[in-house]
Amino acid sequence: MPEETMTFEVRPAGDTARVIDINGDITAQSEGVLMDAYGRASDDGVKSIVLNFSPLDYMNSGGIGLLVTLLVRAQRQHQSVLAYGLSEHYRQIFELTRLDEAVHIHDSEEAALSAAGVS
């Protein structure tokens, strides 16, 4: 999928969290779009980045690499990274790559935001 057909929207969720809707594919070509979305999400005071994988079409190993890079950037800003909307397949991929040890996975946006301390 060409980079311009991916849309990673950023939504506010309270004062301290932002949700990034991952729409389309995540591959190595998504780096610009994903990091731009992360940059928009990282306002002052944001403590949690919530990744919404519900609209995800496909992710390859390059996409997993990008998530690791995003995680490092978030940790540098003392932010936690949470995720929801992962299909069973991608939950297993997160377990296989042990990304689930650093990205907190939840079943729904409500659960993820609750864990992020957003009421």
């Binding site: 690791v68 995680l71 296989l96 790559t97 042990r98 990304l99 040890e101 650093a102």
Partner: peptide, 8 residues
């Protein structure tokens, strides 16, 4: 052995 990502 388990796999190890850069996180580990």
């Amino acid at each position: 052995r388990r796999l190890a990502s850069p996180i580990q």
